[in-house]
């Protein structure tokens, strides 16, 4: 019944629109306004551009200010402060050009709308102007690029010695986390060794892997360099830690890395934001299948002392599951041991 009524309503509405359309067409034919160019419509369109300019500019300004704290994510890494500054510098430069060009673009239509008593100015070129607005953007862009390039090279330089390594392994649909243990060297891995009890494919015949340990969250110390070693098990993933301004793809067969220095502990950030629930998070930003949106991991940033305490308390893979090394052939175990001496 409802459907029927809605259908009738729609039909009525459409026929009203149809009538209005026909009537206005006939009127314009009768008036001969289709032959004219300086019409009311031309004027209305010209005015609408100005209305649009003012209206959207007001809306944009209002919303940008009102929501600033919502869309501006707090930053918690050293390089993040740098890239944020670059972002806002670029925003200032492009924002200026954005507003200036749009004022011209929408004001000209109003100012120069068609009038039969006026003729447009024949102005086909001006080399001086062309050179100016080729060079000025070129210089501005060069400055932006150079500052970006310097930040980029610093960020992508090799990690400083002694950076705390954490391995992140992406798979459908979660991350596995591995720490290098006391030797601070992650043991070898091989994807062919992956099985139910060794989801990371860690090669336990490598002596370096004996003290490696897993973790449910990424725990890292504040103020010290941290190196994420990133790999993937099945398809592409991408590590995204928004508060750290960190992103790097995880590629099967090609380990990648990203190092950074966290600047605020989770506790400090909670106090700053007044949000007791706050956690640093890791998301996936390379589409990887149906669970792409749900690969959440938590990063806990703690004071260095706390970190060392936590680190020393962790149980290695081998401790929690001795069978991992028991299956190894004896000679391989010895080889591995002798190689490490």
């Amino acid at each position: 019944m409802y459907g029927f009524l809605i259908a009738i309503g729609v039909v009525l509405l459409l026929s009203v629109i149809w009538m209005v359309y026909r009537i206005q067409t006939l009127i314009s034919v009768a008036k001969g306004s289709d032959k004219k160019i300086q019409t009311t419509s031309n004027k209305v369109n010209a005015i609408l551009f100005v209305v649009f300019l003012v209206g959207t500019f007001a809306l944009m300004t209002w919303y940008s200010i009102k929501e600033f704290n919502n869309y501006q994510l707090p930053v918690a890494s050293e390089h993040g402060v740098l890239t944020d500054r670059l972002f806002w510098i670029t925003m200032a430069v492009t924002g200026f050009i954005f507003i200036l060009t749009h004022i011209l673009l929408f004001w000209f239509p109003y100012k120069y709308q068609y009038r039969t008593d006026r003729k447009a100015v024949y102005y086909p070129d001006n080399n001086k102007l062309e050179v100016i607005w080729t060079l000025v953007p070129a210089v501005v862009l060069a400055l932006l690029v150079i500052s970006g390039w310097r930040a980029w090279t610093d960020i992508t330089d090799p990690a400083p010695d002694g950076a705390h390594e954490v391995e992140l392994l992406g798979y459908q649909f979660a991350w596995e986390i591995r720490y290098p243990g006391k030797d601070n060297i992650l043991g070898d891995f091989d994807y062919r060794l992956i099985n139910a009890s060794n989801s990371r494919g860690v090669d336990f015949s490598d002596q370096n892997s004996r003290d490696d340990f897993p973790s449910q969250t990424v725990v890292i110390p504040k103020g010290e360099p941290v190196l994420f070693k990133i790999r993937a098990r099945d398809v592409l993933h991408s590590v995204f830690a928004p508060h750290m301004r960190l992103k790097m793809d995880a590629v099967p067969g090609m380990p990648t890395r990203f190092w950074f220095i966290p600047t605020k502990t989770t506790a400090e950030m909670r106090a700053e934001l007044g949000d007791e629930e706050f956690e640093y998070e890791i998301a996936c930003t390379e589409v990887c299948g149906s669970g792409h949106f749900s690969m959440r991991r938590v990063i806990t940033v703690v004071e260095p002392d706390e970190y060392r305490k936590w680190f020393s308390e962790q149980k290695t893979f081998v401790d929690s599951n001795p069978s991992l090394v028991m299956d190894l052939p004896v000679n391989e175990k010895e080889l591995a041991e002798s190689a490490n001496q």
């Binding site: 010209a46 000209f108 239509p109 102005y123 062309e130 080729t134 953007p137 862009l141």
Partner: peptide
Amino acid sequence: TLIIAVPSAVKVFNYLTTLWRGNLRF
């Protein structure tokens, strides 16, 4: 990449100048 922004910018300025002191029919 940022070099390619230059010819794009030139195009925009040229469009704006074309509108300038024209006799615009909407």
